[in-house]
């Protein structure tokens, strides 16, 4: 019973906050509602017994990705009332996208049922004595090692691409050289002059 109550609370809050993401007037509020949605999704994972996935969702999406979202959105200085002019003209396009997604979901749901109506047997659940993390690790690093490495490579290429695109060398900019700073000695910087009275440095 507790699990059912938890499920309904989590999913209702998740759906409501997902709706609030697109309904909120202030984009910072949108991101905050997005975070709430992630959080509730993580709660649903815990209910399913997938606590490792739930923690990953919180660490990666809530702890890192959404922080960067918030970071960027907070610094935007856009007049949002102006941005919302002609908001309704996008409605047909949005409707088409929603329809396509809905159709795909229906397709997957119906494909999960075989012709005689019996559900296709799902992959066997991991034996209960193996923890989540172990089960995922076993699959990820043995069966799908190549795919896993390729995914990592794609991310690496994307990261390097972002650095290459944003890095620019401007001539004449004085840059800090840490090694030179740390390597500086007293003899390089201080010179003792014996100045006689009334004669100055000249």
């Amino acid at each position: 019973m507790l699990a059912a109550i938890a499920f309904y609370v989590l999913s209702i809050v998740a759906i409501a906050s997902a709706f609030a993401v697109i309904a909120a007037r202030n984009p910072v509020h949108s991101v905050l509602f997005l975070i709430l949605t992630f959080f509730n999704a993580a709660g649903l994972f815990v209910l399913l017994g997938a606590e490792f996935l739930a923690m990953l969702l919180v660490v990666v999406y809530v702890g890192a990705v959404a922080v960067l979202f918030l970071f960027v959105v907070m610094m935007l200085d856009v007049d949002f009332t102006e941005l919302r002019q002609g908001f309704l003209s996008y409605l047909p396009a949005g409707f088409v996208v929603a329809l396509a997604l809905m159709g795909e979901l229906a397709l997957v749901a119906s494909a999960a049922m075989s012709a005689d109506g019996a559900p296709i047997p799902l992959a066997p659940a991991a034996p209960s004595e193996v923890t989540n993390a172990e089960a995922i690790g076993n699959v990820l690093y043995t069966d799908y090692l190549l795919v896993f490495q390729l995914a990592g490579l794609v991310l690496l290429v994307a990261m390097i691409g972002a650095i290459v695109l944003t890095l620019r060398h401007r001539p004449g900019v004085r840059k800090q050289n840490i090694a030179a700073q740390v390597g500086r000695r007293r003899a390089d910087a201080v010179e003792l002059k014996d100045i006689r009275p009334g004669q100055g440095l000249g």
């Binding site: 606590e51 490792f52 923690m55 919180v58 660490v59 702890g63 923890t131 989540n132």
Partner: peptide
């Protein structure tokens, strides 16, 4: 929790 340390990290 089985994922205690991950929970703390999160």
């Amino acid at each position: 929790l089985n994922v205690g340390i991950l929970y703390l990290f999160a």
